[in-house]
């Protein structure tokens, strides 16, 4: 019996060898922007990926069985935190491998005032859960830096032998993000006297970082706003200023025309989408356009 078992062990071992060789360091994220940050810090032999579809808003995506199994088998799962990808709360994932990249700056979270729902189950219940926060942190490069640090820390904790390389890559990433911050500061300065609208309330951290004074609507890029929504829009329009509206995606042509009629130009900042071109810069991967400015 024993020799047979021994032989079996060897055979199984041999069979397992090729798959072990393929056992690459795998990191999955819940949004393309985090993948972009992680890619900056990762070494070349690591696989960083976001398994959701490229043409869908990652903030609204829920993985199916196949993707969940991918997440389960990943070495690390990078999360945005603050309620982004709510499906993670009920998915059976390896908790120690789930890294909340915003856990270090929970004190900086911005509450989504209009949406907050807290509930109590009778007087004794606990009401501190369910509150929702804005969570597109990476639109503020300063916060993106902190997320990058968290990613680097998680990588080093799991693969200490590569810590030096991660540290070096983090340094470079911080610099890139510093430069991005400087560029964005400069670019948004050109919009100082412009009234800024947002199609959706997802730009809170960018708003705060650059003092934009955004007014947010709940408009979908693939739906034409109804007359009530236009009425509300028009009520907000400041006739004395140029108006720029920030969209997550290019709106429908019809909407675009209506906006042009009102002399409103648009900027597309898409924090939760995969850039449609392969050689995108980190800036583009985080959702920013090549340059922020007035479109004609």
């Amino acid at each position: 019996m024993r020799p047979v078992l021994f032989l079996l062990t060897i055979l199984v071992g041999l069979a397992a060898m090729p798959s072990m060789a393929e056992d690459k360091r795998t990191v999955l994220t819940v949004t393309p922007a985090l993948s972009a940050l992680a890619q900056e810090i990762a070494t070349a032999d690591m696989t960083i990926s976001y398994p959701g579809p490229a043409d869908e808003n990652a903030a609204d995506w829920t993985p199916g069985d196949a993707e969940l199994r991918q997440y389960q088998q990943a070495d690390l799962i990078l999360l945005v935190g603050a309620g982004y990808s709510p499906w993670t709360a009920t998915a059976a994932l390896p908790r120690a491998r789930m890294i909340d990249t915003s856990q270090g700056f929970a004190d900086l979270y911005i509450g989504r005032e209009t949406d907050v729902v807290a509930h109590q189950h009778g007087p004794s219940g606990d009401a501190n859960h369910h509150s929702e926060y804005a969570n597109t942190f990476w639109l503020n490069p300063k916060l993106a830096q902190r997320q990058a640090r968290e990613i680097s820390r998680a990588f080093s904790a799991l693969w200490p032998e590569l810590a030096e390389e991660f540290q070096k890559n983090l340094g470079a990433t911080i610099e890139t993000l510093e430069a991005l911050n400087a560029a964005l500061t400069a670019e948004f300065t050109t919009l100082e006297n412009v009234q800024l609208f947002a199609s959706h309330p997802v730009y809170q951290y960018m708003d705060q970082a650059y003092g934009l004074g955004l007014h947010s609507f709940h408009w979908e890029p693939d739906q034409h706003p109804d007359s009530g929504q236009w009425k509300e829009f028009d009520a907000q329009l400041d006739p004395n200023r140029r108006t720029v509206m920030i969209w997550e995606e290019e709106p429908m042509l019809e909407t675009l025309k209506e906006l042009q009629n009102r002399d409103v130009s648009i900027i597309v900042v898409s924090p939760s989408f995969t850039p449609s071109f392969a050689d995108a810069s980190l800036r583009e991967k985080l959702g920013f356009p090549k340059a922020v400015g007035l479109r004609q």
Binding site: E113, V116, V117, A118, H119, Q120, H121, G122, A127
Partner: peptide, 8 residues
Amino acid sequence: NSALVANS
């Protein structure tokens, strides 16, 4: 306030 409290 803005929180909703649910009954049982």
